[in-house]
Amino acid sequence: MISSLFPLLQLCDSNFPSGAFSHSFGLETYIQDQQILDKESFLKAIGTYISHQLVYCDGLACRFIFEALENQHISEIIKYDQLLFVSSLANETRTGNRRIGVRLAKLCAQLYPSEHLTNYLNQINRKEAYGHSSLVFAMVSFHLQVEKDTALGAYLFSCVSSLIQNAVRGIPLGQTDGQKLLVEVQLLIKGAVAAINLLNPEDFGAASPGLEIAQMRHERLDVRLFMS
Rank of each mutant, 00 (worst) to 15 (best):
L198P: 01
D81I: 00
E128C: 09
T29D: 02
S51V: 05
Q215A: 15
L198F: 07
V183G: 04
I189N: 02
R103A: 11
I74M: 08
V136C: 00
S141G: 00
I171C: 04
L187G: 02
F25D: 04
D33T: 02
C159N: 10
S114Y: 14
Y112K: 03
A167F: 09
L199P: 01
Y49F: 13
A207Y: 09
S87A: 08
G153I: 04
T48W: 08
Y49T: 08
F6V: 12
N91R: 15
R99V: 10
I46Q: 03
K79F: 14
F204R: 03
D222E: 15
S228H: 08
K180V: 13
R169L: 14
L104A: 00
F42C: 06
E70R: 12
Q34F: 08
A207E: 06
Q53T: 13
V55E: 04
E92A: 12
N119S: 11
L117T: 01
T176I: 13
R224L: 04
R224K: 15
G19K: 03
A90E: 11
E115V: 14
L173V: 05
F66N: 05
L211R: 06
N122D: 10
Y80W: 15
I65C: 05
T29Y: 13
N200E: 08
T48G: 10
G205P: 11
Y112V: 07
D13K: 03
I196P: 05
F42D: 01
K106C: 12
Y155V: 04
V86G: 00
L5K: 04
L84S: 09
L111G: 06
F137G: 00
D222N: 14
V223C: 09
K190H: 14
L104Y: 00
